[in-house]
Design a protein around this nucleic acid. Structure first.
Lengths: 123, 123
DNA sequence: TGACAATTGAGAATGATTATCGTATAATGC
DNA sequence: GCATTATACGATAATCATTCTCAATTGTCA
């Protein structure tokens, strides 16, 4: 893996950095212009390997990618499938996990599942 | 959704309960006999909705399912993609998350990513 | 400039999951 | 027990995200 970042990969990175949220490959594909599908997927893989973005599998659908900014967790509604960002400092938990599990932990992913307040109100 | 569990769904549930680990739909399909693909997927969906098993998207490949037993987290090696179970009581964290996020949290999923000790040794 | 490596896009291929649909089985009312 | 209805089933087609292939283009650097 080379550490070089092609112009197209930079564009993809900028999209993720500017829209401050998780996007699917398809959403990224729509917001850039004149970049092919394979190239977007390749850029996402490359940036993930470089540790500049993260890939998350939150639901049954496509994976989402997000620019690494601050430590936060996700809440996924089991009913409407909407994903919410939840600000929470996970560093202590990651450190803890690292100690327990006996492997070298780079980062941690915390996802809460349940019923979001909007869906709860409807019921 | 009916709360009834068909004979085939019971078989699927038993497989997950006996092998005490996360299995893909395909692995389950292989270890049962005379149950069609669609039926296994239907059973997995149904059991997930009933809250008897959990669906996890841990890597880039297929989803895995696990019988709900105790609270633990997962470690996924970024190099070999192997998944390790890590015993850790997450209840405190879930409670915390519930408070912060303002939604109704049913369960939480914690996944650590990094280099497993086996891969670390090889490098 | 020339040679070799890396990147690209179009489209085919893959692989997991879901939908369809005719049949089989189970549940319910009588 | 029998008729009626709802559910579950399997085979297979369809879908959809993602990856692969490959020829063409572009970038790198001596």
């Amino acid at each position: 893996m080379s550490a070089r970042i092609s112009a197209h990969a930079k564009t993809v990175l900028n999209v993720l950095a500017e829209k401050r949220c998780h996007l699917t490959a398809e959403e990224i594909l729509e917001s850039v212009d004149g970049i092919g599908t394979a190239t977007v997927y390749r850029a996402l893989d490359h940036l993930t390997e470089l540790g500049m973005i993260r890939r998350l599998s939150l639901g049954k659908k496509s994976a989402v990618y997000e620019y690494i900014r601050d430590s936060h967790m996700h809440f996924v509604c089991s009913r409407c499938s909407k994903v919410y960002d939840v600000q929470a400092d996970l560093s202590g938990m990651i450190r803890e996990a690292s100690k327990i599990c006996g492997h070298h932990v780079n980062w941690g992913e915390v996802t809460a599942h349940g019923l979001c307040s909007a869906c709860l109100a409807e019921e």
